[in-house]
Design a binder for these strands. Structure first.
Lengths: 68, 68
DNA sequence: ATGTGACTTTTAGTCCGTA
DNA sequence: TTACGGACTAAAAGTCACA
């Protein structure tokens, strides 16, 4: 499992656990909906600060977001 | 403590614990020396895959590399 | 509500120096 | 051995129309 897929899986899991849509999470993390979608499909290679914003919006730590 | 500084501190700590120079770590992780230096000074915002390569070269997990 | 391709702008990341 | 600058190239960031 590559890191992009791990990140993708964790974001989707946590997002759905919180009952959020991609659009809601996109707003909360100040990321464009389509860009977030790309991350959640494992097609993007986001930077440290972008991932930190997503972790923040999901209410988890960044290391947690990257757990395998 | 922002994430760039946390990453910087952890990389430097782990690198020195292993007795490696920046240049050796740069080679091991296939990253340019000057760029690695910038990361280790907290001035850069590296991508997921670059951080994963560094974690790998240091023999730690990526989440571990990002622990506060 | 999500997936996708094509796109432009910005920044990551490289390579060359100097100190 | 590390820090830093400039110039460059590759890729991320960010947006849009459409399915």
């Amino acid at each position: 499992m590559d890191w992009q897929s791990t990140l993708a899986r964790n974001i989707r899991q946590l997002r759905q656990d919180k009952g959020l849509t991609q659009e809601q999470l996109a707003v909360d993390s100040s990321i464009d909906l389509t860009y977030l979608g790309g991350i959640e499909r494992g097609r993007r290679n986001p930077s440290l600060l972008v991932m930190a914003r997503i972790a923040d919006a999901l209410g988890v730590s960044l290391p947690k977001l990257l757990e395998k």
